[in-house]
Design a protein around this nucleic acid. Sequence first.
DNA 1: CGACCTGGTGTTATCGCTAACATCACCGGC
DNA 2: GCCGGTGATGTTAGCGATAACACCAGGTCG
Lengths: 337, 337
Amino acid sequence: MEKTSRDPAMTDVARLAGVSHQTVSRVLNNHPNVREQTRLRVKAAIKELDYRPNRAARALVTGKTQLIGVVAQNSTLYGPASLLSAFEEAAGEAGFAVSVGRVKVLDRDSIAAAVERHRDQRVAGIVVIAPNSSAADALADVPAGVPLVTVDGDPDRSTPLVTVDQAKGAFEATKHLIDAGHETVWHVSGPADWFDAAGRVEGWRAALDATSAEVPPVVAADWSAASGYRAGQMLARMPEVTAVFCSNDHLALGVLRAMSERGRNVPHDVSVVGFDDVPEAAYFIPPLTTVRPDFAAVAHETLGLLLEQISDGETTRPRRTVAPMLVKRNSVAPPPR
Amino acid sequence: MEKTSRDPAMTDVARLAGVSHQTVSRVLNNHPNVREQTRLRVKAAIKELDYRPNRAARALVTGKTQLIGVVAQNSTLYGPASLLSAFEEAAGEAGFAVSVGRVKVLDRDSIAAAVERHRDQRVAGIVVIAPNSSAADALADVPAGVPLVTVDGDPDRSTPLVTVDQAKGAFEATKHLIDAGHETVWHVSGPADWFDAAGRVEGWRAALDATSAEVPPVVAADWSAASGYRAGQMLARMPEVTAVFCSNDHLALGVLRAMSERGRNVPHDVSVVGFDDVPEAAYFIPPLTTVRPDFAAVAHETLGLLLEQISDGETTRPRRTVAPMLVKRNSVAPPPR
DNA sequence: CGACCTGGTGTTATCGCTAACATCACCGGC
DNA sequence: GCCGGTGATGTTAGCGATAACACCAGGTCG
């Protein structure tokens, strides 16, 4: 029977290389004052033993971990999921591990609990994907001193924040419809307490105001195709509706279906624009014109802001926004005459 | 100036409670031999100082972390994303933190590197979402002794594995079409090197064989709506095609669009069934009949298998599969006559 | 009634690392 | 030809927990 001996430690490497463990530590941390020859000997020993430094020991003595905690809702909504994925990749490239704390609902208690779990783990920093007001409220409970960045959070709060420029995207989407000749544009909105939805309403309204178009009432929905469908059923019955800007692609999908059922052709009778550019949007019927956020850019900004706080304790520009891009496909046409 | 003093340690709690730090440790770990009164005093002190145990110190002395590493592809495909989210939730409830290592492509080197990063962190166990053969191959590089569970991986490999019962889902989907009166069922498949896709092909073929239906050639695609659309364009031109089982919902979406463009009505001219039950599937045109995997169940099985290995070093039932469920909507009808 | 257990607690060693300081050889400068 | 600086390395002292053992009071038992 082989006894499974413990993992090699720094002293084992040191012994093999014929140096002190401190020298091994210096090699590992790229200290300048190590002779090249020694460095090579140590590296060879490390390789031979398949030595890997014990992060726990290092964390214990330095008081720092290389862990970033993320709090995200347990949903598969395209936006948040993409963001999370992009952030994990970015953080990984920067040498940080990402610990994800999922939360069933975005209420204050759940988020506070998730943040606490991360603090227990002594993460170096925390990212909260806090897209609605209850989530944003929970951040008040986070003690100062913990590096924290909010994504998609409350623009009126003072925590460092990164968001997609919702208003800009919505403005462009709406303007695109107006430029196509529509007198006005209706809007099917996401949940009112989501900042993304609010920003899109704002941009839509600004675009209408800019051309003095009449501003129709907002049609409120949640993010689901189901609610888009219900909104669409209503809009489809109103002949004066010739252009609809939807707060996301799934809402748009529901609207498309409602229009189709009512025999209103998209885009000839009604134009529709979405938001998010989900991968399948190009294969809706018809292919959907939509607004594409740059999640990778949001992830990088977020990481940058967080790392700044981790190293400096401070942040210079605590608010960053990333411009989205209009993707034109076949769901927009001039209004029927 | 307040000097930010260090976080309270166990000795601080001990001093405040008038006991030794070891007693504090005993309280924290629910050792039986502590007087009730002492326990309460210690708990009060913990609360007063907002003391939280240092995981790094604990990990150092016990040699164990409460971290599970997950390797997943950096994609927003609905299936993997749902699985990941469900797993994070399940692990969190069991008191484990989850560190996600994203990988851009599922090739051997990337996965091996991600696994190494997790081993560097000394995770208690690793979950690899290894849905295709190159990913599965990478597992050969993982040394034995590291608790490891594969999800959606290679059924022929000996690593503990949890999967959705793809064949069963596909069988039911296909059978449902045959029962509706179709003479045979065509299949638009996902990438051939994905086990999910292969399992679905197998189930589809088994259902056809069971009723001695003719087995048409598999139409190969990837997972995208785009490729489903291309497959659909071909199928739409073939009048003998009256039923199509697609390997996922996005492929089905592409097929629906192709059919619609060619004027072939779904479900009256052609019936279509998908797989995954993405949230918006109910709002496709028409609402899509599809197969719904139970991701939460997969997540729980995975966690269970992993925890078994972590505590016992062994596993009793290293292979578990979770049955999916057919969800009937409006994309299936009897064939035209 | 002394040996022995047992519940409650304290003391000490230890995990594997980094920080701080100590050591020592070698160098150039006056 | 001694002095101080500097580069390369070693030694020691923790970081904050758990494990192992020591200790002590009080009860049980032969």
